[in-house]
Amino acid sequence: MLLLQSASRCRCRAHFGGLGRTPDGHLARQEVPAPPGRPGAGRQRALTAGLSRRHGPATGRDAPAGAAGSSPAGQRQQPAPAVGLATLILVICGMTLTAWGDRITAPLRRLRSHRDLRRTAPLWAALYAVRPEIALEPPVGLSGDPEFALYRRVIEIRDGQLALPVHLHPRVPEWAADACRAARLDERRTAATIEAAVLTAALEAAAAGRRYPYPATPGHAPPATPPDLHTESSRLTLVADAFIHCPIVAGIRRRVRADLHAGPVPGNAHPAEPT
């Protein structure tokens, strides 16, 4: 009722003006000055005031600027529960990473070990044919634990390398280095190619029973064994690939065979002693 009375009174005053008496006692309309501001602002203010008394504080676009959605002074909004849950999950994962991380990476390590075993098989077979004593008993295949099999494969290849320096032609490292420079190979492939050429020449001389009276030239030294198994197996896979497929190694193999068929140079080589 108060709302209707306020709105009706405001409308009458704004539209018809007010009624009053003139100095001579007659009734006449008197203009009621509008409140300051834009035209019709009085009606809107009166209606807003009535609504406020009837229904409480204004909301939405009628609310004062900054009032909508604001929180009381000094009160901070709390983070969503999802943020706390995500933080808790990350903390638990970090604390237990050492327990389950190894199980997740185990299949990848097994696949890598299988791959390295297959790629180093031709090199190992060539060494085993000349030096069968390098093989541990029983011979290792792809069955069982591939990581342990790869560990044994690396040891056996290194043992074969240590048994071959006396059969190395002294000029093979120089021949291989010159060929790699002419082919513009990068440093990593150059090292693998020279090592494969050295092994090829030593295996050819060992199979022919040829020994050389002095060790390899000072410019060649077998690489040191790294502490990481997969680093060493990756290096040996490059050597095995060069041993089988590299044309530089194939050329040195033919050159060494020709030198062996020509016979030892007096004072430079002699037949191998029986073992």
Rank of each mutant, 00 (worst) to 15 (best):
A177N: 09
V130F: 00
E147S: 08
L199F: 01
H169M: 07
G56P: 07
R235T: 06
G141A: 08
A63H: 05
A269P: 03
L127S: 00
P138N: 04
L229R: 12
R184E: 13
V83A: 12
G56H: 10
V154P: 02
E232D: 14
V32T: 07
V130A: 07
R76T: 09
Q75T: 15
Y214A: 12
I104H: 00
V239G: 02
R109G: 06
G25H: 10
A269K: 02
L19P: 04
E137F: 11
L97P: 03
A34P: 11
T105I: 12
L127T: 00
A34R: 11
L117S: 01
P79Q: 07
P213M: 07
R9A: 12
E195W: 04
R211F: 00
L111Q: 15
L19H: 10
R119E: 11
P173Y: 06
R11P: 00
P81T: 07
T275N: 08
A192L: 09
E232R: 14
L162H: 13
C10Q: 15
F243G: 01
L111H: 14
L2P: 15
A224Y: 06
P227K: 15
G267E: 05
L97Y: 12
A135D: 11
T200C: 02
A269I: 04
D62A: 08
P138Y: 07
C12Q: 14
T231K: 05
L123N: 03
E137S: 15
R103W: 13
A250I: 13
L238E: 10
Y214V: 14
T237H: 06
V166P: 01
A125H: 11
L90I: 09
R119T: 10
Q30G: 04
H270V: 12
Q78C: 09
L199V: 04
G263W: 02
V166M: 05
G40A: 01
L90H: 09
H230G: 03
G69P: 12
T48Q: 14
N268T: 15
L97H: 12
A46M: 14
T200E: 07
S8Q: 14
I134N: 04
T87I: 05
E156M: 03
E174F: 07
A221N: 11
M95D: 02
A240I: 05
P247V: 01
G17P: 00
H26N: 06
P57K: 09
L127Y: 02
L19F: 09
V130M: 01
I92V: 11
P139R: 13
A68M: 03
A28W: 13
I157T: 11
I92R: 08
I252M: 08
P266T: 05
E174W: 09
Q44P: 01
P39Q: 09
I157S: 06
P139I: 10
I157P: 07
E273G: 08
I155K: 13
Y212I: 06
D259E: 15
I134S: 00
V130D: 02
A191F: 00
A68L: 03
R43S: 12
R29V: 10
T237D: 08
P247L: 03
D62F: 08
A67L: 14
L97C: 04
Q161T: 03
R188S: 11
A182N: 11
P39M: 02
T22E: 10
